[in-house]
Simulated scan of single mutants.
Amino acid sequence: MENTRIRAADADRERVATAVQIAGSEGRLTLEEVEERLGRVYAARFTDELGALTADLPRPAPPSSGFPLTRAALRRHPALRVHLAVVVAIAVVATVRWVALGAGFFWPVFPVFWLAVSLLVHARVRSARERPRTAVPY
């Protein structure tokens, strides 16, 4: 039978050592456990040995997404493009009506604000549905 174990690189060891140090700084491991695991990390020759050293530690949370309303999101979701078009059309109509009536107070700010909020919520929901669901153990 062929040996299928993969040798660990220095970068692999450093990545695991960082995870062990972070777990120690968070109080998940005692100082003795950190020292013992770090010794085993730097002595490890194969990647499966490294995986065993962090198997009981929680995985880092996935990075949060940035601003949800991007050009890429608009390209991927036609419903967002329609929603944006409706928001812009209503904002333009409300502003034109405000100008035509000569009202002193700029009242269109209220409906435009809530329309923009609804668009951002729509974009956030769409981006949340795209992200893979991963459980973060604690």
Rank of each mutant, 00 (worst) to 15 (best):
M1W: 07
M1E: 05
R5L: 15
I6Q: 11
A9V: 04
A9N: 03
D10M: 13
A11E: 10
R13P: 00
E14M: 11
E14V: 11
V16R: 01
A19G: 05
V20A: 00
I22A: 08
S25V: 01
E26L: 07
R28P: 00
L29R: 01
T30P: 00
T30N: 01
E32W: 12
E32H: 14
V34Q: 02
V34T: 13
V34R: 02
E36G: 06
L38I: 08
G39Q: 05
R40S: 03
R40G: 00
R40T: 01
R40L: 14
V41P: 01
A44I: 03
R45N: 05
F46H: 15
F46K: 10
T47H: 04
G51I: 07
G51C: 12
L53I: 06
L53H: 05
A55W: 06
A55H: 08
L57T: 03
P58I: 08
R59W: 07
P60L: 08
A61P: 03
P62H: 06
P62L: 07
P63C: 06
S65A: 11
G66Q: 10
G66M: 10
G66S: 14
F67H: 13
R71S: 14
R71D: 12
A73I: 09
L74S: 10
L74N: 06
R76I: 05
R76C: 04
H77Y: 10
H77V: 07
P78R: 09
P78G: 12
L80K: 03
L80R: 03
R81Q: 05
H83I: 08
H83P: 00
L84N: 03
V88Q: 10
A89F: 15
I90G: 12
I90C: 14
V93M: 14
A94Y: 11
A94S: 15
T95D: 03
V96M: 14
V96Y: 13
R97A: 15
W98G: 00
G102H: 07
A103C: 05
G104A: 10
F105Y: 11
F106H: 10
W107K: 02
W107T: 02
W107S: 02
V109F: 14
V112L: 15
F113I: 12
F113N: 04
W114R: 00
W114H: 02
A116Q: 02
V117M: 15
S118N: 13
S118P: 02
L119D: 01
L119G: 02
L120Q: 08
L120V: 15
V121M: 13
V121E: 03
A123V: 10
V125P: 00
V125G: 04
S127V: 13
S127A: 14
S127L: 11
R129W: 09
E130R: 08
P132G: 08
T134A: 09
T134N: 06
A135G: 09
A135T: 11
A135W: 07
V136P: 01
V136T: 08
Y138M: 06
